[in-house]
Amino acid sequence: MTAPAGPSSTSSPAIKICGLNRPDMIRTAIEAGATHLGFVHFAPSPRHVDHADLARLADGLPRGGPAKVLLTVDADWPVLDAAVDALGPDLLQLHGHETPERIDAVRSRYRLPVIKAAGIADAADIAALKPLAATADLLLLDARPPRDATRPGGLGQAFDWRLLSGAEFAAAIGQTPWWLAGGLTPATVADAITRTRPQGVDVSSGVESAPGVKDPAAIRAFVSAARAAFDLKT
């Protein structure tokens, strides 16, 4: 079970709008200048897109447009196989407790770059990045969810960006590119980019009017602010 190798799409700077589930919001993200489109295939999420809709949304995407990112959480092979077949992603985002061995296996099976999400709350989480950074093609640094959370990810919360500076972070991350997520909004993304200097940013709930409902004005404002902070020319 393999998919054709797509573009690596891990070069910087990147602006990813995640949790897309409607054609009109996808068009808004593309027209605004997003570089990556994220699609969540995880049933507990309010942004979950099933196999049929993944295929439908993929059919409507322009050739040569932004990279398609498939987000799954501790998915087994049958779930991943079906989702990859439906969407035809350019990158795979693993947002659960996947180990370095699992990352390697996923990359080998689908011949696609793998983004590994990692929750950050304290210095111990920074140290834990080292084996992931040695294996993943790219890291997505998000806020660590509360212990009683039913879903992974930052859940709209930011973490202490000061953890992303200093020798400890540099040693843990090595040369692996990384993107920032967690609590980003149109009002905060420029400051986040300036202060942390990531290779990309990722937003989902920060551009929504309700869980799973994207706000077109917020998408446009977020991408505009991020592009300006990254100094991307139109």
Score class of each variant (00 low, 15 high):
P211C: 10
K116G: 00
R147N: 08
G206D: 09
A187Y: 05
P152E: 14
R111S: 13
A34T: 08
T185K: 13
S205G: 13
A127K: 13
K130V: 06
A192P: 03
V114L: 11
V213W: 13
I193Y: 00
G182E: 10
Q93K: 07
H48I: 03
L87Q: 08
I30A: 11
F39M: 06
D160Y: 04
D76H: 05
L87R: 06
L91S: 01
K116P: 01
L70G: 10
A121E: 12
V79W: 09
A187V: 08
L141N: 10
P113E: 06
A171G: 10
A171T: 13
A143G: 11
V201A: 00
L180E: 09
D50A: 05
K68L: 14
A127W: 09
R63P: 12
I193A: 00
P89C: 12
G38Y: 06
I193L: 00
L80A: 07
A34K: 06
E31L: 11
P46W: 08
A32L: 04
R197G: 00
A170S: 13
L184H: 10
P78I: 02
K130A: 15
D137W: 01
R151Q: 14
L94M: 06
D202T: 01
L138C: 10
V79G: 07
P4V: 01
S11K: 09
R56T: 14
L129D: 13
S209H: 05
R147K: 12
L54G: 12
A218Y: 01
S9I: 00
A75S: 12
D122L: 05
A3I: 13
G64P: 00
Y110G: 03
R63L: 15
D24M: 02
T2Q: 13
K130W: 02
K16P: 02
A172E: 09
R109Q: 12
R27H: 04
I26R: 02
R227D: 04
F42H: 15
A218V: 03
A192S: 12
R56P: 04
V84G: 04
F42T: 02
A172L: 10
Q93Y: 10
F169K: 03
V189D: 03
L94N: 07
H36N: 05
H97K: 15
K214L: 08
A43C: 04
G65E: 12
D160L: 02
D148N: 14
S12Q: 05
A136C: 09
A67S: 15
K16I: 02
S165Q: 15
I126Y: 06
A221Q: 12
A5W: 08
G206C: 09
G96Q: 07
K233C: 06
T72V: 14
A134K: 14
I126D: 05
R162F: 07
D53R: 15
V106N: 08
L138V: 00
A118W: 11
A181P: 01
